[in-house]
Write a protein that binds this DNA or RNA. Structure first.
Length: 225
DNA sequence: TACCAGGAGAAAA
DNA sequence: TTTTCTCATGGT
């Protein structure tokens, strides 16, 4: 399918899917981090790797006292790269972390961003080299509490398996589809994305397809499956 | 040993 | 404008 294909799920289907996932896995209380800055750092480190690798890298940053923008900007590239080595792509991610910390420092810190309009913040984050749409939206939703829906590989996989989308649609098409269909609720968006990840990890990785992937097909006349 | 995992940017076509 | 390549570790 073309990447420009429209994605306009009904609110009923998306709410039904959320409720089924919530019933199956319970509240997730994401993002797994002790601070907003840890969310920011984790969002960069999580690019294209499993979360277990990110945990190791964050633990190394913590134990060396480098989990702050000041520290990240103060150490050499080589030292930062060595600390985050377990997350993979360590040279690339060291550059990206420094770019992001320079941006935050220039803005007066992460706290200074609170209260700014979502669209303005999103544009600013996307202008940072190394920060793409998913990473920007991770930061907006989980670190700054803005109602943006995060689309990741798990979300695409789930949509494809449920027949709601091909999974190859443009990022913005999928994000807009979720945000049109759902109320702009930060807590809902956080839990929804976390539940998608949990479900994808636990169930939909099993080949060839899981029976549970039919869970959204019974939504009709406003009812919940 | 080979494959895969929660992206993004640059280069090439 | 779209596609391909590159970055890299660690678990299965």
């Amino acid at each position: 399918m073309a990447k420009t294909e429209n994605f306009s799920p009904s609110p009923c289907v998306l709410i039904a899917l959320y409720e089924r996932l919530h019933a199956a896995y319970g509240p997730q209380h994401w993002w797994p981090a002790d601070s907003s800055l840890e969310v920011v750092v984790g969002a960069v480190l999580a690019q294209n790797v499993a979360w277990t690798h990110v945990e190791r890298a964050i633990a190394r940053l913590k134990t060396s006292g480098m989990l702050s923008c000041e520290a990240i900007l103060a150490v050499s590239h080589e030292e930062l790269a060595e600390r985050i080595r377990p997350a993979g792509y360590f040279n690339v991610k060291a550059h990206r972390l420094r770019n992001l910390c320079m941006f935050l420092a220039g803005e007066g810190g992460l706290e200074a961003l609170v209260g700014r309009p979502t669209a303005v913040l999103r544009r600013a984050l996307l202008a940072v080299n190394g920060i793409g749409p998913e990473t920007a939206d991770d930061i907006l939703l989980y670190a700054l509490d803005h109602p943006v829906f995060v689309i990741d590989a798990y979300t695409r996989r789930l949509l494809a398996r449920y027949g709601l989308a091909s999974g190859t649609e443009d990022y913005e098409i999928l994000r807009a589809g979720f945000e049109r269909a759902l109320p702009a609720d930060v807590a809902l968006f956080k839990e929804y994305h976390a539940l998608i990840v949990e479900h994808a990890k636990q169930v939909c990785r099993r080949p060839p397809r899981c029976d549970d992937c039919r869970l959204v097909t019974t939504c009709g006349r406003g009812g919940v499956a």
